[in-house]
Amino acid sequence: MVTHVSAEVRGDERGALLSFLAEQRGGIRRAVLGLTEEQAASRPSASELSLAGLVKHAAEVEQYWVARAKGEPPAIQRDQSNWHETFQLVGDETVASQLAYGEEVAAETEKFLRSVPSLDDTFALPDQPWFPPKGRVSMRWLALHLIRETARHAGHADIVRESLDGKTAFELVALAGK
């Protein structure tokens, strides 16, 4: 299992942002290490979240934001009637297929953020009531938002995994290193 994207630490801002994002993605990926499909899909805590769902959701959300920054439609269209499907595997989706999708998304994010002329370049926020009207944000904001979103879900994954079998994030880092 790949545990990080090639976000090379170069001492520059883009490299640092991509490295922090890769680190948080790794936390989500490691949370499913050694689990069966059934274990990964289970919801052992008070939350409705499963590890499989978190793996899927993190990749879909990252892809959505990068597509938005590029001015493209997201690869997977969601509306109010099927938003919950971002948090659960459906059809023939598996943990392995979602991990692979996440790796593709991560590579695209890195390629995109390394290619934009400036992290100060902007794009429009969605027209949603929780965003400022006609708001624009920078590519730097995008990277920081992805780090924040991914870190939040990596924390969720820690709790779900520990509720499932008692393994902590530190134990999973050690297991992944073997």
Rank of each mutant, 00 (worst) to 15 (best):
A59N: 01
A31F: 10
S45I: 06
V55W: 00
S97C: 05
S81T: 15
H57M: 10
I76S: 02
Q39T: 11
G91I: 05
A41R: 13
F112C: 13
E108G: 15
D79A: 14
L89Y: 02
A59Q: 00
Q98R: 11
P73F: 10
L49E: 00
T94C: 01
D79W: 08
G71P: 04
R43P: 04
F87S: 08
E93I: 09
P74R: 13
A52E: 06
S118I: 06
W65E: 13
A59Y: 04
P44M: 12
S97Q: 03
R29H: 12
S42E: 03
S45N: 11
A96G: 10
G91N: 10
L49Q: 06
V66T: 11
G102F: 03
E62L: 09
V90Q: 05
L89H: 00
E110I: 15
S47N: 11
R68D: 06
R43C: 13
R29G: 13
A107E: 08
S115A: 15
P44D: 05
R30C: 02
E48N: 15
K111N: 12
E60L: 15
Q77P: 14
A46C: 11
E93T: 07
E108R: 15
Q77G: 14
Q77I: 15
A52C: 13
L51Y: 09
G91K: 07
L89I: 00
E60G: 10
Q39D: 11
A31P: 02
Q39H: 12
E72I: 11
L33V: 04
E48L: 14
A106D: 08
D79G: 15
S97H: 02
A52R: 04
E110K: 07
V66M: 08
S115C: 10
A107I: 05
F87E: 03
Q63C: 02
E60D: 13
G71S: 06
S115V: 06
P73Q: 15
P73R: 14
Y101V: 00
V32T: 05
E110F: 14
R78G: 05
Y64T: 06
E108T: 15
A67M: 11
G91M: 12
E62R: 04
H57P: 04
H57I: 04
A96D: 09
T36W: 04
T36M: 06
L33Y: 06
L54H: 01
S42L: 08
P117I: 03
A58G: 11
S45F: 11
E103I: 01
R43E: 10
S115Y: 07
N82I: 01
A59S: 09
L113I: 14
A100Q: 11
R68V: 14
A100T: 09
A106M: 08
Q98D: 05
Q63Y: 01
